[in-house]
Amino acid sequence: MYFFRDTWIVFSRSMRLSLRQPLWVLIGLLQPILYLTLFGPLLQNIAASSGFVGDAWQVFVPGLLVQLGIFGGLFVGFGIIAEWRSGVIERQLVTPASRTSIITGRTLRDVVVISVQAIVLVGAAYLLGLRVPAGALIIGLVLVALLGAAFSFISNAIGIATKSEDALAPLVNTLALPILLLSGILLPMNIAPRWLQIASDFNPFKHIVEALRAVFRGDFADPIVWIGVVLAIALVVLGAWMGSRTLSAQTK
C-alpha cells in the first residue's frame, strides 16, 4: 500500500506551494488575531451579563478555535478547483497514486496551516489573559485539526464535484451560516428561545464547542467532552469518505 507515500508526495507539493505565497499564510495568521483583539474585548464586557459560564477567555477562545477549524477548511475548495483547471488533478489521477491520497495530501496541508493558525491564536489569547490547563490546549488543538480536516475534505469534495467557484461559493456560505449561528460560538445558546435551543441541539458543532469549553474550564470528566471528540472524528470520517468517493467518481 503506497497510500502514505502518495499522500506525503501530494502533501509536500501542496505545502511548498502554500509557502510560496507567504502573504496568504500571513493573512491567514492575522485573521484569528483580529478576532481576538477586535471582538475579544467586546465579549469581555458582556460575558458576565450574557449567561456564559466561566471566564470570558475560556468561553470565547474555544468558540474561536472551532470557528477557525470550520472556516479554515471550508474555503479550500477554491484552490482545488484552480488545480483541476490547470490539469494537475488529472495528471495525478493518471499516475499509480492512490485516489484517496490525492485529496488526503491536500487536506493534510490544510490541517497543518490551520493548526499553525490555532497555535498563534492560543498564544495571542494567552498574552491577553487566557489561562487554561496544558491538557486543554492540546485537546483544543486536536479538535481544531479534526474539524479543519473534515471541512477541508468536504470543501475539496464539493470543489471537485462542481468544478465551479460559482457553485462552491453559495454552497459553502449556505453550509457555514447555520453552523455558525446554531453553534453558540459567538453567543451562548442558553439565552436563546426554546425552539432555537432545540434546533441547535441538532448542530454537532454546538456540542463540539461545549466540549472544548468544558475542557477549558478544567471539566475533563464532563461526558460532553467525549461526545465532542467522537463527533469531530465522525465528521472527519464522513469528509474523507466524501472526498475519496468524489475523486473516484471523476473517472466514471
Binding site: I9, R16, R20, S86, R91, Q92
Partner: peptide
C-alpha cells in the same frame, strides 16, 4: 493531456520531481 498539467505558481523543477515521485 490536451489541457495542460502544471500549476502556474509551481516551480518547473519541483513540479517535475514531485510527479516523478509517484512512480
Amino acid at each position: 493531456s490536451q489541457a495542460g498539467s502544471t500549476s502556474p505558481e509551481a516551480v518547473v523543477g519541483e513540479e517535475i520531481m514531485s510527479h516523478a515521485q509517484f512512480y
